[in-house]
Every structure is written in structure tokens, then in C-alpha cells.
Design a protein around this nucleic acid. Structure first.
Length: 574
DNA sequence: GCCGTTTTCGGCCCGACTGTTTTCAGTCG
């Protein structure tokens, strides 16, 4: 079982216990345990074998024992018993908005409902309204929520889709004369790879008219709740949007609060409590009821004796301790990127000529571009034979003469790692290239052993400089290869190969957790867009988001190096 | 269930909105 499978078991246990009416803090402990496993960055099986389960923060004796049982026997007695007690269909029902553990339990116990379908049927027959605490309106609301759940069955939305929508909504909000500022918060501001909903924050002294004009936007299909300080709507494609309003004097606490993560905020509140302060989205409150408001987010941290912590770090992954110790990293910024090391042209499956890609890269402010078209075996992408590769080299050499001084154009290749682990070009050909990227596109469904061995073979080849999008995942479409990432990272650290964070929002591969582990191991990272079109060069902000979430500094990302240093480094490899 | 330079027991974050209620429970973020 992998980390997320084990985490899922504990999430289910938390939900089941909550439906059972267990003490909420016991429930939260299981949720925190599940979260810790997802953020681990190491294979849980390795940690288990090394007997270090209890060293994971949030995992104590009880949960460690359950992980041990789960990994040892592939079963968990406690979980099986719970499942016998409470039908699993109730967990599905929790996904319906306005149905929480209390109502789910009630529907089940009083009406025998154990699925969303049965819930819908009962609501249509008007059977829900007679339950205590329910009424005709609640019943109608649940019916609406079931339909809305079906509309957005896709689950979380890629940041590549969500960010442009958020920008559009913010632009609309800012048009209102009473709006002083409008910002995105939540997981979008933290640059998570996908977001469940959008959280928008508005600074205004006249909230009602702002909310009233907001809910009239044509992109909005349903208003779930509307108040002067908080409004919740659904867009036509099912995406949920929360808008909060605050007077500008309270915008700092509000932005901090709405940015989260929940776990990060819990930690901050603990620190506040130690200082005799209670922290909310409104203000710090002293015991005597007096308030300290913050217009700026940095003031919130300052009051707690902390430096400002970048949103991308706010996941309760050790950032608060680092802030206390003064060891927060100086995170990489978009402007630090000076090079694009992974791009395609019409020679393979790119949309534009090399010259056009160079022009676009210069317009983006880059000082170096590597053209890395596909190798011959990737037929669907018009991969280059050795002969065409050499022809391309001549074109690039000719083009270089016309380039402005100081701009560097490299000839590279994105070489297929074949199903048997060999590379698509022989070593003599690889040696001719300025830059060799190796990547997997095919046979991703091989066994863990096999697919890991392929990647290890590529890493061991001294001509290979970068491993691109290591797992090959396409978010929401295709699972990545079942890699033994611990071994891949160890091998990369030994060989000195660069690992790529692919910035295409569909990929974001390495992900944040593995990228952080890579940094811990001293592996240099690349942030590349894999551009097949000039517009794709702008994807790098997503890659920077992943790198920042991985605590990366500019020094650890080779695209930030001066062109000369980068070329010297490449030349020093095979 | 987890955790501890104030604690091995007693805490564990806070508030808006809705719909059902005569003061609050449930849900959500």
C-alpha cells in the first residue's frame, strides 16, 4: 500500500467515527494522521521498516500500531469492524453539501438511507422534512446539492483552470467603486496543484452593494448563501466560490485567515493563545475583550513574534518552527528564472519554428533557451531520427550567428526512455548534444520494479542531464508511473542529475512533496515549461509555485543560474 | 488520539450563515 492509500483508510476512519458521534478530537487526530502521511515525502513502507512511524508528527502509538497492522497484514481489524457497523455509503453522502455526520447518521438510522441515490429518492418523496431539525427548505436544499455534486463530479480543479477564473472574478470585483482591494486566498494563493473552491477576499466599507452586484455576474449559476460578510456561490461549471468582505483595517487578519491552510492556522492560534490572545479573521482579542486589528498580513505574524511566512509554505510542514528558528528559506521568485531548458519546435510536435521560440523566450526575459525536440521512437510526436537531429543542429548553429549577444541557444533533445530502459539514441549521438533530457512517455503501466529500473538506468547514463516530468502523470487524466520514488531520488542524488519540475499545470511533476525531498537530498532542480507553443512559456509561474511549496531557493534551481555557469556545468557532464 | 521549556492529564480555533427554532444545532471553511 502506498502513502495515499494508507491515508485514505485513516480519512475513512475519521468520517466513520464522526458519524458514530465519537469525540471530535479523536476524529481530528485521525484526520491529522492522514494528512501527515500525504505530506511525508518518503515511502511509508520504508519508514515502517525502519521502525520510525511514531516519529511522524501526528502519528502516535495508536495510529502507528494501525499502520503496522495495515502494512503487515494488508488489513485493519479496527477499520473492518467500523465498516460492519456503519454502511460505507454514508461516506459518499458526506460529499453532499449540507449533509454532515449528524444528518447522515439520522437519515440512516431513522429512514434506512445508505446512498446518495436513496437520499435523493427520499427527498423527492418528501420524507426528509419530517425529521427533527429538518424542514421543507432543508429538503429542497439537499436535492439541489445532490444535483450540484453531479455537475462537478470532476472533483478538484487544476490550478491551471482555476487561476484564470479567479483573476477574471477578481477583475469584476475590483470594478465596483466600493471595493478597495480584492485578492484570492485559500489553496489557490498557496499554489496547490488543484483547488476545491475559490476563496476571494474583498476590502470594502460597503459590503452589501458589493455582494449584491457580485451575485448577478452571468458566470454564476447558483447562490448557496448570501450575507454581507460572506457569500457562497456556484459557477456554471460547478466550481464553488466564497467571497468574504472586510473593512480595510481588518484585511490583514482576514487574508491570513482565509489563506490557510487550516492546519497552519491552528498552529498560529496556539501561539496566539500562549500570548493570551485569541486570533480570528477579525482581529486578535485580549481576555478583556479589547482588539488588535491588522490591515496588513505581515502584522499578524509580527504580533506573534514571527517573520511573514510565504503562503506556499503554510501547510504545517515545519514552516512555523523554521520561522521561530529564523531558518525560513529565501524562496525562489518568478523573476529569478533566466532560462528555459525544455521546449519543442515544429521539428517534432511543437507549433512554432525555433526562431519563433527564441523570440518568445527573449520576450519572457530569458537569457537562454534549449530546444529539446522528441527523439525518434516517439512517432506520434514526429520524433527526430539521428539524421534529422543532426540537420537540426545545423539550423541552430546558423541561427546562433544571428542572435543578439548574450543570448544562449542550446541544442538538446528530449530522449525517450524505451520500454526496456535503453535510451532512444546511442551514446555517441547523445555526446553531440548540448543538453540531454530523458523522459518516460510510454509503457507507464509497467510494474513498479520495471518502470523504476528504466528510470534508474537513464539516471545512471552520464550523458543524461535532466530527468523530465519523472512520473509522467497527467493530473485528473492519467496516474503517473508507479515509481519507487525513494530509490529514484537516491540515485539522482548520487549521479548529480537534475530533476525537472514540469510547469505545465496538467503535469506539475515532480510534485511539491517529492521536490522538497529532492532538495533535502541536494538534488538540483529545473523548472521547465515543456513549451510546445510560445504561450506555454508563461506556465513557469505554476512551476515556481511547486518549487516554492518545496521550499526551494533560487540557488537550488538551475534555471536561475547564469548562462555561463549552466553551460560549464553541462559541459562538465558526459 | 496526540502532545508537552508552564502540563503524562487536560487541553485541542473561531465565526458566518441557514433553517429550524423560541435560544440553537448543523455545516462549512
Amino acid at each position: 500500500m502506498n502513502n495515499s492509500e494508507v491515508a485514505q483508510v485513516f480519512e475513512d476512519i475519521a468520517d466513520l467515527l464522526e458519524i458514530k458521534g465519537e469525540q471530535i478530537y479523536r476524529v481530528l487526530a485521525y484526520r491529522r494522521g492522514a494528512e501527515a502521511l500525504k505530506n511525508l515525502g518518503r515511502d511509508i513502507n520504508t519508514v515502517w521498516k525502519e521502525g520510525e512511524l511514531e516519529e511522524i508528527p501526528g502519528v502516535g502509538k495508536a495510529i502507528a500500531g494501525k499502520i503496522d497492522e495495515l502494512l503487515g497484514t494488508r488489513k485493519l481489524e479496527f477499520y473492518e469492524k467500523l465498516k460492519k457497523e456503519i454502511p460505507l455509503g454514508l461516506l459518499e453522502m458526506l460529499k453532499v453539501s449540507d449533509v454532515g455526520p449528524k444528518k447522515a447518521a439520522r437519515f440512516w438510522k431513522e429512514l434506512g438511507i445508505t446512498s446518495i441515490k436513496a437520499l435523493e429518492a427520499a427527498a423527492k418523496r418528501g420524507e426528509l422534512r419530517d425529521l427533527p431539525g429538518m424542514g421543507a427548505r432543508s429538503e429542497a436544499r439537499i436535492l439541489e446539492s445532490i444535483q450540484s455534486l453531479r455537475r462537478r463530479q470532476t472533483g478538484r480543479l487544476s490550478i491551471g483552470v482555476a487561476l484564470p477564473i479567479a483573476e477574471q472574478l477578481l477583475a469584476e470585483l475590483r470594478k465596483h467603486p466600493a471595493v478597495k482591494a480584492a485578492e484570492a486566498a485559500g489553496s489557490l494563493r498557496r499554489m496547490r496543484e488543484s483547488v476545491g473552491d475559490l476563496d476571494l477576499l474583498v476590502s470594502t466599507d460597503k459590503p452589501e452593494p458589493v455582494m449584491q452586484s457580485f451575485v448577478k455576474l452571468p458566470i454564476i449559476s447558483r447562490v448557496r448563501s448570501q450575507g454581507p460578510t460572506k457569500t457562497s456561490v456556484e459557477l456554471v461549471d460547478g466550481l464553488r466560490v466564497q467571497v468574504w468582505t472586510h473593512p480595510s483595517a481588518r484585511f490583514g487578519t482576514a487574508l491570513q485567515y482565509a489563506t490557510g491552510s487550516k492546519e497552519h492556522n491552528v498552529r498560529l492560534r496556539e501561539i496566539a493563545l500562549d500570548q493570551g490572545l485569541s486570533l480570528s479573521d477579525q482581529a486578535f482579542k485580549r481576555d478583556d475583550g479589547s482588539e488588535i486589528t491588522c490591515a496588513q498580513e505581515a502584522e499578524v505574524y509580527e504580533r506573534l513574534g514571527l517573520p511573514w511566512i510565504a503562503p506556499e509554505l503554510r501547510e504545517d510542514r515545519g514552516e512555523i518552527q523554521a520561522a521561530l528558528d529564523g531558518t525560513l528559506p529565501e524562496l525562489i521568485e518568478l523573476a529569478d528564472l533566466k532560462a528555459e531548458l525544455h521546449s519543442h519546435s515544429t521539428w517534432s510536435d511543437g507549433a512554432n519554428s525555433i526562431e519563433q521560440m527564441v523570440k518568445a523566450a527573449r520576450a519572457e526575459g530569458h537569457r537562454l533557451l534549449a530546444i529539446t525536440d522528441h527523439s525518434k521512437s516517439l512517432g506520434v510526436a514526429n520524433g527526430l531520427t539521428v539524421e534529422r537531429l543532426r540537420k537540426q543542429r545545423k539550423e541552430i548553429a546558423a541561427l546562433r550567428k544571428r542572435l543578439p549577444k548574450g543570448f544562449v541557444l542550446l541544442h538538446g533533445s528530449e530522449v525517450e526512455i524505451l520500454a526496456d530502459g535503453r535510451l532512444d539514441y546511442p551514446d555517441v549521438v547523445l555526446a553531440e548534444l548540448d543538453l540531454v533530457i530523458a523522459s518516460l512517455h510510454t509503457s507507464l503501466r509497467q510494474s513498479r520494479e520495471k518502470v523504476t529500473a528504466r528510470l534508474l538506468a537513464a539516471i545512471a547514463n552520464p550523458h543524461v542531464d535532466i530527468i523530465a516530468h519523472p512520473t509522467g502523470r497527467l493530473i485528473g487524466e492519467r496516474e503517473g508511473a508507479d515509481l519507487d520514488m525513494d530509490r529514484v531520488l537516491e540515485a539522482a542524488a548520487r549521479s548529480g542529475v537534475i530533476l525537472e519540475i514540469n510547469s505545465n499545470p496538467q503535469r506539475l511533476d515532480l510534485n511539491d512533496v517529492h521536490a522538497r525531498r529532492a532538495i533535502e537530498l541536494g538534488i538540483p532542480l529545473a523548472i521547465n515549461t515543456d513549451a510546445h507553443h510560445p504561450d506555454h512559456l508563461a506556465f513557469r509561474n505554476y512551476g515556481v509555485g511547486v518549487a516554492r511549496r518545496a521550499w526551494a531557493t533560487a540557488e537550488q534551481v538551475v534555471n536561475c543560474w547564469r548562462p555561463k555557469r549552466l553551460r560549464d556545468w553541462l559541459a562538465s557532464r558526459g
